[in-house]
């Protein structure tokens, strides 16, 4: 956990790493498609779980939005909130449920301020979680588009028009 906490002090570095990995996977997409997404998903699950658990305390929801939430895993919020902090945050910025843990969303907000690439995505409305993807590789779900698949009636794109920023 210690190593992860050290790394999380550099959200801009982490978002760059994400960006790089994203493009790498996009490049490899044709190859992965030929091998078969399911098969690669099987190979990737373990290493992805390990790497993301060490750095982000990842919960393997299978639809990663780390870059949209200040490079902070929103699923480690005990209430699994994807759209921001609840009203129970303590005065010292710690969690309502686990008093010793800093609120995930307080951290997400602070980190997003240092993120020049994806920082503003904190304002996006995140759709309900697809619980069927739990445990699968988010990178493969990104390639197949499953991580972006929203319930039928949910709007495809959700960005807030703000009067001022």
């Amino acid at each position: 956990m210690k190593f992860g906490q050290q790394l999380q002090r550099y959200p801009h570095f982490l978002e760059r790493t994400y960006q790089l990995t994203y493009h790498l996977f996009k490049k490899l997409d044709p190859l992965i498609a030929r091998i078969g997404y399911d098969r690669v998903d099987g190979w990737l699950r373990g290493p992805e779980d390990f790497a993301k658990r060490v750095v982000f305390d990842c919960h393997m929801c299978g639809q990663c939005i780390l870059h949209s939430t200040g490079m902070t895993c929103s699923m480690s919020c005990p209430k699994n909130l994807r759209n921001g902090p609840c009203g129970g945050v303590r005065a010292n910025g710690h969690c309502e449920v686990k008093p010793e843990m800093p609120c995930v969303w307080v951290q997400a907000y602070n980190r997003s301020l240092d993120m020049t690439v994806y920082g503003d995505e904190l304002l996006n409305i995140q759709p309900p979680v697809n619980r069927q993807l739990e445990g699968s590789s988010a990178w493969i779900n990104m390639l197949t588009g499953q991580d972006k698949a929203v319930p039928k009636a949910w709007p495809q794109m959700d960005i807030i028009p703000l009067a001022e920023k």
Partner: peptide, 23 residues
């Protein structure tokens, strides 16, 4: 919707409200 302006992260609370109104 509910809003709590009195707990951290204070700077973000108005934006959180904006999200709720947009939703």
């Amino acid at each position: 919707a509910a809003s709590n302006p009195f707990v951290p992260p204070f700077d973000w609370r108005p934006y959180r409200l904006a999200k709720k109104i947009e939703a």
